[in-house]
Simulated scan of single mutants.
Amino acid sequence: MLNPINRRRWPVNSLGVLRDALRARAIDIEPFLIAAGIEPALLDQPGGEVAATAELAVIAACLRLPGLGEGFGLEVGPRYRLAAYGVWGFALLASPTMRSALTLGLEYQDLTFSIMPISFVSAGGDDALVFDDAAAPPALQRFMVERDLTAALRISADLWDQSADCRAVSFRFPAPADPRPYERAFGCPLHFGAPVNAVYYAAGVLDRPLPQANPVLAALHVEACHQRLRSLRGEDAFIETVTAAILARPGHFPGMEEVAAQLGLSSRSLRRRLEDSGIGYRDLVARLRQDLACAMLRETGLGVEAVAERLGYAETASFTHAFRRWTGDSPGRFARKRHQ
């Protein structure tokens, strides 16, 4: 269940997506930001957040422009790549199947940018994501449905690393005068004036393994990420964003330059922002590795050499030395004590 909209805040990433869609139409978002009390520079600040109600005010104002009514959400939704969702997107990426990704994603709906409660149902041999627009402001309902359903397909495509394999899509609103933009956006049979807004998948499709799935490491990354995020949540939202970028590829710990590029920052800016949050990049990577190492040794039965390899160490001796520094114990002794 989503928290009330007036209690929700989220990263500025969503407004950044809207800004890009407006730019494609040669429209400047700044006047709408200012009118909603949002400093335009905030959109370029990593870790920046806005009240959900303020973003909705910006959207409502934009939709009053000529030509930005019906169908505009179809242009915005596909721009929501997994990276825009931060830790929520990482959690989905780490899941073994699309079904498990959807189940986890819906459990943490408050980490998304949707104001519509989303449910996952199975009926008549199909699986469906259902979007309830009943509580959305009437002026925003069509846009939100267009945006969030196309965003759902974009997320599915990112997870599958191919086009979203959906069977059909339905909308509660009536058929548009020109259905071709909808046909291009969804590429599957469409049903307007339906009882629900939903994306339908054929039975069994959601149980296919995701391309980056690793049954052991994925589960460990998700758990370690959740544990770390719970502790980081009170520190700084920017650290949460960097953590998600570091853990985005199981078994790979990128250098600071790679993470900075992924976040659209210079290495100097990333270093300065982390220092402002009270931690260096190497220290952040080290404690993430420590969490994962302890979890793998405790829960998987993997040998020390295998754990070192999965944590990106070229030599087992380097991992053993680092583990002693973290815990005061050797990884082998740590594993034996946990299984005694």
Rank of each mutant, 00 (worst) to 15 (best):
7 R>G: 02
11 P>R: 01
11 P>A: 02
13 N>K: 06
16 G>Q: 09
17 V>C: 04
18 L>S: 04
19 R>M: 02
24 A>H: 14
26 A>M: 04
32 F>K: 08
33 L>Q: 05
33 L>A: 03
33 L>C: 03
36 A>I: 06
37 G>C: 13
45 Q>L: 14
50 V>Y: 02
52 A>Q: 08
56 L>V: 07
56 L>D: 14
64 R>L: 12
66 P>E: 13
69 G>N: 13
70 E>W: 03
75 E>F: 03
76 V>R: 03
92 L>F: 10
93 L>H: 12
95 S>F: 06
106 L>T: 05
111 L>Y: 09
114 S>W: 00
116 M>S: 13
117 P>S: 10
117 P>M: 11
124 G>I: 01
126 D>E: 12
142 R>A: 15
144 M>A: 14
147 R>G: 00
152 A>V: 10
155 I>M: 15
159 L>G: 01
163 S>I: 03
167 R>C: 01
174 P>Q: 12
185 A>L: 08
189 P>N: 09
189 P>G: 07
192 F>D: 09
198 A>K: 02
199 V>F: 00
202 A>N: 01
202 A>F: 06
205 V>Y: 00
206 L>M: 14
210 L>R: 07
211 P>S: 12
218 A>V: 02
219 A>H: 09
221 H>M: 08
226 H>V: 13
232 L>V: 08
233 R>G: 06
236 D>A: 11
241 T>R: 14
242 V>R: 05
256 M>R: 05
256 M>S: 07
258 E>A: 15
258 E>L: 10
259 V>E: 06
267 S>L: 04
269 S>P: 00
273 R>E: 12
280 G>P: 01
284 L>G: 07
304 V>R: 11
308 A>M: 12
312 G>M: 09
312 G>R: 08
317 A>Y: 06
321 H>K: 15
325 R>M: 15
331 P>I: 15
